[in-house]
Design a protein around this nucleic acid. Structure first.
Lengths: 99, 99
DNA sequence: TGGCGATTCCGCTGCGGGCGGACACACCGG
DNA sequence: CCGGTGTGTCCGCCCGCAGCGGAATCGCCA
């Protein structure tokens, strides 16, 4: 026993880095009451691309992350803590720990 | 006053995500007593590339990060906390670590 | 309904991810 | 003093995807 059953899909056993990051980024931006255009312009990137980042579609480089965090006025370390918390939210499901 | 002299590199005033990540990854691997080959093989990537990641030269994708953390037996959230701590080590003096 | 602000979708191009091959460096044994 | 082995790094190549421009879509209010 004690075998863990992956019932629905083995596609994404765990939350992906870029997805959690994107969610946290969007949450931070919305808390600030900023539009995509505003934050994107301050970060020096296109709003289209910022949208992709926030939805976890594209993989942002370290420089991009730095630019966005700078535009949002948050510290990278704080953001990482937030993302870690984001990931820890794995409430639903019988899965305790992915192998 | 209080101008900080960045003697050689004025490029990155702040630590870059991939650099802090790489340091934390290498530290974790060495704590485990693993060689590049071992971790790389478990992660399903080439040892050359893992070396590049650990030294912050290349930008690993989310899937790569997941593979490496899996190979190291650490949780992504824990890793992020560690990286955050890594960044928080703000060099009190002008520069402590010489390249 | 129609116009407008905000976000998302589509397709293209340049650059960097990822690896194969060879090499540098240290530490051995003979 | 050399060969050899074990570990990590450097050099380039190539294809995939980052990043953006253009345009469609989705509310929302007059």
């Amino acid at each position: 026993m004690a075998d863990i059953l992956y019932l629905h899909r083995a596609r994404t056993p765990e939350p992906l880095w870029r997805e959690a990051l994107g969610r946290r980024l969007r949450a931070t931006r919305e808390e600030r009451g900023d539009r995509l255009v505003d934050t994107a312009e301050r970060a020096g990137i296109s709003p289209q691309y910022l949208s992709e980042i926030e939805r976890g579609r594209k993989e942002p480089s370290s420089e991009m992350i730095a630019a966005v965090t700078g535009a949002l006025g948050v510290d990278l370390a704080d953001l990482l803590i937030g993302v870690a918390g984001e990931i820890r939210q794995a409430p639903a499901g019988p899965v305790l720990r992915a192998a």
